[in-house]
Every structure is written in structure tokens, then in C-alpha cells.
Amino acid sequence: MLWYHIVFLALIQGLTEFLPISSSAHLILPSQIVSWPDQGLAFDVAVHVGTLIAVVSYFWRDVYFILKDWSASLLGARATSNSRLGWWVILATIPAVLVGLCFNHFIEANFRSIEVIAYSTIGFGVLLWVSDRFFAHAKDIQQLRLPSVLVIGVAQALALIPGTSRSGVTMTAARFMGFSRDAAARFSFLLSIPIIVAAGSLKSLELLSGQHLLVVDWHSIIWGVVLSALSAYLCIHLFLKWLSQIGFLPFMIYRLALGALLLWLVKVS
């Protein structure tokens, strides 16, 4: 990849991983629309590591207390809001992991087209806005219960379809279940930690099991980690700061515009 490929793709991964606009779609599109070279498996792992560094760094206090209380609960300590939140994160992660293990290759082979990305971008964008506009939202993150967690977890599994957006679909489900914008976003970001670890581990195993290490460009890898981490950290901070004011309407408008552009490209190609 050329230097501007590295910069663009790393920044796009960092910005779109946590915004409800689908990072997978934005990473697929450059190679399909403007014929950029595929960034390769090693670079995918690098930018996943960068976004993981960002979200853990931003929520390090939450992560610390969740892990501390959850670990103590395994040893018989009294349950706390943090230990329960740890269990909710685990339970909500299971559906996506199972679906990913069972159907990842099928999805990769059949759903990575511009047309699929366009329709999922539009459809799930509309659902995000509907959930934000027409449902009562007063619950905070401490009011999570098993039914809501399972709904959010099942919704997260849908994000394996390119264009869906993992953060977008989990926030949509949380909003449908009556949670505030801040609660929906924070739980979505906490859920991203095990999912990014799982996705990065899977890609790392694929990398180590093949011949990819022979062609790894470490200069690209390092810049991919750094740029995706910095852009993701900034994105999380600004998103949480502005979300209560702007809502999800701007993201739906962006998704509709992007989906329409992609459908037009399919038609004229």
C-alpha cells in the first residue's frame, strides 16, 4: 500500500469502528470502488489492535472495576453493579461469537458485495433512527437485565453482515429496549472489547497459519496501529460528548446518502 492508503484506511477504521456507520463497509469499499489494493490480513489485525487500545484506554477505569468485581464474584464475593455488568458483557458477546464461528466463511463468500452493503447501510440506518425517535428512553446502564442483554447480543450478531455496523445495531437494540443514548453507547463500547479481541484473535490465527508473515510490511503495521488508536480514541470522546445533543439523525442521513451512492454505482457499473 502507498502511504495515503495506510493513513486513510487506519483513520477510517478508527473513526467508523465506534460510529454507527459500519467500519467493515468502509474498509471494503476502497478496494471495490477505486481499485485500491486489498490491505491484507496483517493490516486488518493492526487496526483492530489500534481500536482495542483506544477503547480500553478510554474506559480503563470501568474496565478495571468490572474485571475486579467480576473476578471477585467468581470467588464468592457479593454481586455488585460492576460484576453484573461483566456478566452482561459476556452473555451479550456469545451470540456474535457463535454466529461468527459457524457462518463467517459463508458471510465472507456471499455478503461482501457493494449491493449488500448498500441495502444493509440503508435498512439498519432507518432502524437506528426509528429506535431513537419513537421509543421511550430513560433507562441507564445499571438497569440492564437478562432479556435486554440477550436482545442486544442477538442484534450484535447481525453486524457480521457488512454495512450493518456493530455499534449501530447494538445501540439500535438498546434504544428499542428503552435505554438512554448514553447508556446505549457505553454498553456498545464495552461490548466492543471482547468482540475486537475475538475478531483480532481469529485474524491473527489465520495470519499465523498461512504464509502471510512472509509479506508483512511492518512500517504499515505500526502506522496502522498508531493512527487507528488515535482516531478511535478521539471518536469515542467526541461521540459521547455530542450524542445527547445531536442524536442519531445525522448518522441515518449519512447512511441513506452512502447507500444511495452505492446503489447508483452498482447500476452504472
Rank of each mutant, 00 (worst) to 15 (best):
Thr16Pro: 11
Thr16Arg: 07
Thr16Phe: 11
Thr16His: 09
Glu17Cys: 04
Phe18Asn: 07
Phe18Lys: 00
Leu19Thr: 01
Leu19Cys: 04
Pro20Phe: 13
Ile21Phe: 03
Ile21Asn: 03
Ile21Val: 15
Ser22Pro: 05
Ser22Ala: 05
Ser22Trp: 06
Ser23Cys: 09
Ala25Ser: 06
Ala25Met: 04
Ala25Trp: 04
His26Asp: 10
His26Val: 09
His26Phe: 13
His26Cys: 10
His26Gln: 10
Leu27Phe: 11
Leu27Cys: 11
Leu27Val: 08
Leu29Ile: 07
Pro30His: 03
Pro30Gln: 02
Pro30Ile: 01
Ser31Trp: 14
Ser31Ile: 09
Ser31Gln: 15
Ser31Met: 13
Gln32Phe: 00
Gln32Pro: 01
Gln32Asp: 00
Gln32Asn: 01
Gln32Met: 07
Gln32Gly: 02
Ser35Ile: 05
Ser35Trp: 11
Trp36Thr: 12
Trp36Asp: 03
Pro37Gly: 09
Pro37Ala: 11
Asp38Leu: 15
Gln39Asp: 11
Gln39Arg: 07
Gln39Gly: 05
Gly40Trp: 03
Gly40His: 05
Leu41Lys: 06
Leu41Arg: 06
Leu41Pro: 03
Ala42Pro: 14
Ala42Arg: 10
Ala42Asn: 12
Phe43Leu: 00
Phe43Trp: 02
Asp44Cys: 08
Asp44Phe: 06
Val45Asn: 05
Val45Lys: 02
Val45Asp: 05
Val45Gly: 05
Ala46Phe: 06
Ala46Asn: 02
Ala46Asp: 00
Ala46Tyr: 03
Val47Phe: 07
His48Gly: 01
Val49Trp: 05
Gly50Trp: 03
Thr51Lys: 04
Thr51Gln: 08
Thr51Gly: 07
Thr51Leu: 06
Leu52Met: 02
Leu52Arg: 06
Leu52Ala: 04
Ile53Arg: 12
Ala54Trp: 06
Ala54His: 03
Ala54Leu: 05
Ala54Thr: 05
Val55Glu: 06
Val55Ala: 07
Val55Gly: 09
Val56Leu: 08
Val56Gln: 01
Ser57Phe: 15
Ser57Ile: 13
Ser57Asp: 00
Ser57Leu: 15
Tyr58Glu: 11
Tyr58Val: 08
Phe59Gln: 04
Phe59Thr: 05
Trp60Ser: 13
Trp60Arg: 14
Trp60Gln: 12
Trp60Val: 09
Trp60Asn: 11
Trp60Lys: 14
Trp60Phe: 15
Arg61Pro: 08
Arg61Asp: 11
Arg61Val: 15
Asp62His: 12
Asp62Gly: 04
Val63Arg: 08
Tyr64Ile: 12
Tyr64Val: 12
Tyr64Asp: 12
Phe65Ser: 14
Phe65Gln: 14
Phe65Tyr: 15
Ile66Glu: 00
Ile66Val: 15
Ile66Gln: 05
Leu67Glu: 00
Leu67Trp: 03
Leu67Ser: 07
Leu67Thr: 01
Lys68Tyr: 07
Lys68Pro: 10
Lys68His: 13
Lys68Ser: 11
Asp69Lys: 11
Asp69Gln: 11
Trp70Gly: 09
Trp70Ile: 02
Trp70Gln: 12
Ser71Asn: 10
Ser71Thr: 14
Ser71Arg: 12
Ala72Lys: 15
Ala72His: 13
Ala72Gly: 13
Ala72Gln: 14
